[in-house]
Design a protein around this nucleic acid. Structure first.
Lengths: 224, 224
DNA sequence: CACTGACCGGAGGATTTGTCTCCACTTAGT
DNA sequence: ACTAAGTGGAGACAAATCCTCCGGTCAGTG
């Protein structure tokens, strides 16, 4: 488990391995900035390699997309696990995790995944579901401990992270928009806190991750 | 003032006027969903007209973009003015305004404006600055009245609106993402409220609209 | 009702943009 | 020092998009 079916591939040479990682990182950035259809040449250029190198490691766009998604998901898993284990309260773990997600920017990569990769992809689904499960647990705990307002779902948190992760369009330099994202997340976290004199409960649909999944199923983008 | 230099154009025929408006509306939607580079044919199709009609009214992409931006800005101006005049408190006006902006989705159109239209465009700058001025006034009042936390700027609010306005990527139907946007705005508004026992002030840069403007000046997207 | 000039749709040529392959050159690893 | 793995970039091919042209239609008027 955890190895491609067609195993026994000789390990990459050191420099090739480096290049592969650089391409993966660059692809993450470019997908976040320009969307999942961004030109692959842009990615290879940003990685400092030729276009051929990219195609050698990832036979087509789908393979690259998938690798990026898997990589980001795994890092996110790491973060949520570590946050849960190291922070004193569930709420603290949640906030720490949220800030870290902004840094990874998986929030912005994740929707790409949703659009381009079938929901059934096993390897991805496994990592994803485990991470979602942990998050769900944190949310429930934080609500039981009275720190997190009871009317939000882990789906809300996920979607808010997506919103905050995406870079603001326009001429702002990247570093600045990232600082702003953290600032705005702080603002949001204050809104997530449980408070005695809350005016009223939230309106609108309170979706969970599973709801999103079932909605996604009925979709089709085929052309005649 | 307020009329194109080359005035005295005969008024459009009724059906042509209709088409023009439909194109404008469709362009707004498509730009929001697909970005400012979206194919013009998609716009004309969604407006229910032929591509030629679009080109007849708007000689090129820039003209269309500009018209969309101006239209959205004017509606936003309307909303902020009305909110200020009709609501009992500045904070109430602010929240009402924010919800209305989500409906107009100018938040998502505005960055397009920033990218495609020169900052010096007089007609646009006039409407924009007036709207920004009113917002700035509302923020200051709400802070003086003790309803709005003192460490946010009108720039924060504007950028948060941009974040919330943009549709979530992925297969969610449009209506659903809009409902969710309002839900999440409510969450955010609770974070914006002034509260006695606030943990700590916000970190990160606290930019105003003017800061954004001066940052935008030093940009260039020319090709060799 | 009949007329006419404004208005319309959509086919299609030109052009830009992106994908992916091939091959002569370079370099890590023994 | 040797060699198999790795590399880069030109360019053929394909797709998407722009924008114009022209025969047909319809709103508005007398």
């Amino acid at each position: 488990m955890g190895q491609k079916p067609n195993a026994a591939r000789p390990p990459l040479r050191a420099d090739a391995r480096d290049n592969r990682n650089r391409i993966l990182a660059a692809a993450g950035e470019v997908f976040v900035e320009q969307g999942p259809g961004a030109p692959l040449e842009e990615i290879s250029k940003r990685a400092g390699t030729g276009i051929a190198t990219l195609y050698r490691r990832f036979p087509d766009r789908k393979a690259l997309t998938r690798a990026v998604a898997l990589d980001a998901l795994q890092r996110t898993m790491d973060e949520v696990t570590r946050a849960r284990d190291e922070e004193p309260t569930a709420f603290a773990a949640l906030t720490r995790y949220m800030h870290r997600v902004l840094d990874i920017r998986i929030g912005a990569v994740f929707p790409v995944l949703l659009e381009e990769i079938p929901f059934e992809d096993e390897e991805i689904a496994a990592v994803r579901d485990e991470g979602v499960g942990i998050m769900q647990g944190l949310v429930a705990s934080a609500q039981q401990e009275g720190d997190l307002r009871p009317d939000v779902t882990h789906g809300d948190i996920g979607m808010l992270l997506v919103r905050l992760s995406r870079p603001l369009p326009g001429p702002l330099p990247r570093e600045l928009t990232e600082d702003l994202a953290h600032r705005h997340l702080d603002l949001l976290i204050d809104g997530l806190r449980a408070t005695a004199g809350r005016a009223q409960a939230l309106g609108g649909p309170s979706l969970t991750f599973d709801d999103l999944q079932s909605i996604g199923d009925g979709q089709d983008t085929a052309a005649p």
